[in-house]
Design a protein around this nucleic acid. Structure first.
Lengths: 345, 345
DNA sequence: GACAAAAATACAAACGTTTGCACAAAAAAC
DNA sequence: GTTTTTTGTGCAAACGTTTGTATTTTTGTC
């Protein structure tokens, strides 16, 4: 395997200078003469030199790798945040080490260890749904590595937090159902110890309150974010409770509800109106198309990248919380009118 | 930032032994006494020691990081291959550095450079659709880094190739359309310089030939893999040419066709039968549900991981091509019969 | 108890960089 | 023409490990 790699010393020997000069030349240090610098660059290219990042980082104590820990990379939302992060980080000379936790707290802890052992310059994280103990987050900070949280964040941990405006999205979504005539609105909630689901729940309750509709706990389905749960909720809650609107904290459970309701020949949106959350790609493919709250994942990624870059080398993390605006996309699952148009609310 | 980290030397000093003993103890080397080894482990844990992978890799010349370069991480297929790779690689002590190319050859080249600079132990790649020049692949091999290609592979490059049985998938899919009565079958093809699309095209042609149906070049739409292209193809080819079946090399173009045909009130599957490729999640959400060829992405990931592990440290790459079986999933877009059932073909 | 063999540990160099400091040569100032 | 400043380069240590060899300690044998 590994053929002998060209090192800075090889170049130095070849040119009759010292490694330090070569190093400085490659780094663009202006303490080295212009023509030697150019010669070095030429020879390096000629010899096929590839800098050894390991040696460089070890000596300099700096790293150009940022770790990113997410529940899953194949979620529409997360993959777009990743793209947004890359879009700023790569031009800035950093690269991303992505690890998925598959929603397991244990994997999340392991991921943090791996990243710390690899001496990353910073860590970006959206925690797993299992995570309730955030001591590993604190450990990262204690090691002096900047930690940026996004989307699913814990308020107990210092540092930047980039979050969606879940409350407002939920509020607008529920208000939209009310405006369209719903009075018994069920909520498919997520795990309420996770901030995003708690906030969506809060938005839902606030909308009801504002409209003078009594909150009925019987209409809230907890842990209802996957397709199957949405289907079940139809038989267990939606039909028996004569629900006429569903605000789901997830497009997947909304999808399950649509499918199950169709089986029962319940008309959507005439009998039951539905809106989801996250605007998954399938939202405009399902029949009827699904009203949902779109999150600006790419923009969120940009803000995340900005935050992490800003905090590298800082003594103390700046603990700001940045809210990313969301917009409600109205589709056929909640509006019968064929004059329907997408509208930003 | 970076508080002082505990090193092996700190532990050694604390215990009154030398760093080499600590190193060997942590590595589980049996040249160090049992009780000192246990003492070292305890003290290390106590002091919160995190090994420095950079220093370790630099000295040992070994790395526990594998690079993976894919067009996009949010494609159903690729994200599942990634999971399959992780499933074997993580337990084996490796971690994955994932880089997406967004289908740009330039990004692919940069990704390779980044990985080589980081001295990864191996590289896994599925090339971008733009890539026609594979000199960067060769460079990786010349550097002595094992390169494993999967799905989209180039036959010009040595080393393991893990591929789907595209030919057979296309063959079965087209035969299925023929069996269900289609005689004028269009093919939505991809870029034919990419092996997967060429193979699907070949399978389509072979099926026609076997069935005694003349191949009509007018029914082949090149570069038709995205949704919009599928919609366009309906007006430009499908309707004017009185096509009664479509074998699409991509679920996305198949989806576009379904949507457009519905606009024209063409009955699916009665007037036109459609089958796609890749079994994207939306295939069973769209109306009518879409017949497609499922690829065993997770299994492919396993094979990829196996291949890369096997080839680390090898002098010469073993150039085997492994084919992963696919299966046709029959849905309503191609079968009117309500007695339809998923069948492995 | 002397001696060899085996086991445990220490020593020191190496991996490929970066970087503070020393130093020489050239340029500028007097 | 000497001194000062600037500019360019070299020297050598350091980053935190790993590892071949040397050395010490322990164990076993007679």
């Amino acid at each position: 395997m590994a053929k002998k790699r060209i090192t800075i010393t090889d170049i130095a020997r070849e040119m009759g200078v010292t490694p330090s000069t070569v190093s400085r030349a490659l780094a663009g240090n202006n303490r080295v003469g212009l023509n030697t610098r150019q010669r070095v660059l030429k020879v390096a290219a000629q010899m096929g030199y590839q800098p050894n990042v390991l040696a460089s980082s070890l000596r300099s104590g700096r790293s150009d790798t940022i770790g990113m820990v997410v529940p899953r990379i194949n979620r529409h939302f997360f993959s777009h945040v990743i793209s947004g992060v890359e879009a700023l980080l790569n031009p800035a000379g950093f690269n991303l080490l992505i690890i998925q936790t598959h929603e397991r707290e244990e994997h999340e802890r392991k991921a943090f260890h791996t990243l710390l052992r690899n001496r990353v310059a910073g860590i970006i994280v959206s925690h797993s749904v299992e995570t309730r103990d955030f001591s590993h987050f604190q450990k990262v900070i204690d090691e002096g590595v900047p930690l940026v949280q996004f989307d699913r964040v814990s308020g107990l941990i210092a540092g930047p937090r980039i979050v969606n405006d879940n409350f407002l999205g939920a509020l607008r979504s529920t208000q939209h159902l009310i405006k369209n005539g719903c009075t018994r609105i069920a909520h498919f909630a997520g795990a309420l110890h996770v901030n995003v689901y708690q906030e969506r729940f809060d938005g839902y309750r606030y909308a009801l309150e504002q409209a003078g509709i009594d909150f009925d706990p019987a209409l809230v389905v907890e842990n209802c974010i996957i397709q199957e749960a949405g289907m079940e909720a139809v038989t267990s809650i939606v039909l028996p409770q004569k629900v006429d609107g569903i605000f789901a904290a997830s497009d997947f459970s909304a999808l399950g509800a649509i499918q199950k309701l169709k089986e029962f020949n319940v008309a959507i949106p005439d009998d039951v109106k539905i809106s989801g959350f996250a605007n998954e790609p399938f939202a405009e493919m399902v029949e009827p198309t699904l009203t949902s709250v779109e999150q600006n994942a790419f923009e969120m990624g940009n803000q995340v990248a900005k935050a992490v870059i800003e905090n590298i080398g800082k003594e103390e993390l700046l603990s700001e919380e940045i809210h990313i605006a969301v917009r409600l996309i109205q589709r056929r699952s909640s509006v019968s009118d064929s004059l329907l148009m997408n509208s930003v609310v």
